[in-house]
């Protein structure tokens, strides 16, 4: 089998497996969507009526099959909680998560790589001490705490970004973009630390390689050796880790989105789970699985470009 057909086949297989697992989990966990939607104040008549309305009186296996059937027609079904097409909900939360992920990725790359090289270059030296400590701190700091700190800093000290400031893009795109910056920063900072750490390790390992010694022996300048020879060679591991980070941020951050009150994929996921919203959860699971598979594919592809010795087979 060729590379591409194999990938596509495994893509669909992964998606199906994910939906099956979600389905299985839903069989196990307790909770009735109709009851959760209506709450404790609901009258029994309302619950029964709603169950019928949502098709909850059907067994879950039957609901799963009809969901699969709909999927084949490209229909993700209707959310139980929001009584809206899952597709619309996903699209509107992606409009938040994608730009935020993009911003976060830019921050991660432009801070993480230089920081990693710097800490690698001045490893165990005085001038590398503060950046190295910051990196360690970034890894150790829990993200919810970082989120709250950043929000306090932005809202209270600089007084420019406040939670709930997000407005729909159509209304004021500049405001929307700006209100996404602090959460993007909160999402990015721990990952900057992770990336820097990886880059540093790769840097230190590579520094001992024979070709580096040769390069120095040739009388090349330090700068040339580091940025032309060494960086090129650690690009593979950098790409791998950036791929991982990208899948991570594209999935939305549950905590950060909650803290900054922005309606992204993470918040949608939480509401899907807490409301036992089966079609919505399936839709999000598919999206997440799709992102992982797609990014992996892109990363594979990038390997070949970075290192022509690698062939996709």
């Amino acid at each position: 089998m060729g590379y591409l057909p194999g990938k596509i086949l495994s893509f669909f297989f992964t998606m199906w497996l994910v939906s099956l697992i979600t389905f299985a989990v839903f069989q196990i966990i307790p909770g009735n969507p109709a009851l959760i939607i209506l709450g404790a104040e609901a009258e029994p008549e309302q619950v029964v009526a709603l169950e019928r309305e949502l098709g909850l009186d059907q067994p879950l296996s039957k609901r799963y099959l009809s969901w699969l059937k709909g999927l084949c027609r490209g229909d993700l079904g209707n959310s139980l909680r929001f009584s809206q097409p899952v597709k619309n909900l996903l699209v509107s939360s992606l409009k938040v998560t994608l730009p935020m992920a993009g911003m976060a990725l830019v921050i991660v790359i432009f801070l993480g790589i230089p920081l990693g090289i710097y800490t690698g270059r001045y490893n165990q030296q005085k001038r590398g001490f503060i950046p190295a400590t910051l990196v360690r701190l970034g890894i150790a700091m829990p993200s919810f705490w970082l989120g709250i700190l950043l929000m306090l800093a932005f809202a209270r000290l600089i007084k420019c970004f406040t939670p709930g400031a997000f407005v729909p893009w159509e209304e004021n795109w500049a405001k929307a973009l700006f209100s996404l910056f602090p959460p993007a920063l909160a999402v990015a900072l721990p990952r900057v630390a992770i990336l820097a750490r990886y880059v540093r390790t790769a840097f230190l390992e590579e520094k001992e390689a024979d070709y580096i010694r040769t390069a120095y022996a040739k009388g090349l300048k330090n700068k040339t050796v580091l940025y032309k020879h060494l960086l090129k060679n650690i690009l593979i591991s950098i790409t791998t880790i950036i791929g991982l980070i990208l899948t991570d941020v594209l999935g939305g951050s549950i905590i950060i989105e909650n803290v900054f009150a922005i309606p992204g994929v993470g918040r949608l996921l939480v509401s899907a789970i807490s409301y036992r919203d089966f079609p919505l959860l399936q839709g999000i699971a598919l999206y997440l699985a799709g992102v992982v598979v797609f990014i992996n594919f892109i990363v594979d592809f990038l390997y070949c470009i970075i290192d022509p010795r690698i062939r996709i087979s």
Partner: peptide, 14 residues
């Protein structure tokens, strides 16, 4: 949904 965020939003005027 987050109470802390709501409080900050109130204080900052959102």
């Amino acid at each position: 949904p987050d109470r802390e965020s709501a409080l900050i939003a109130l204080k900052t005027g959102t």
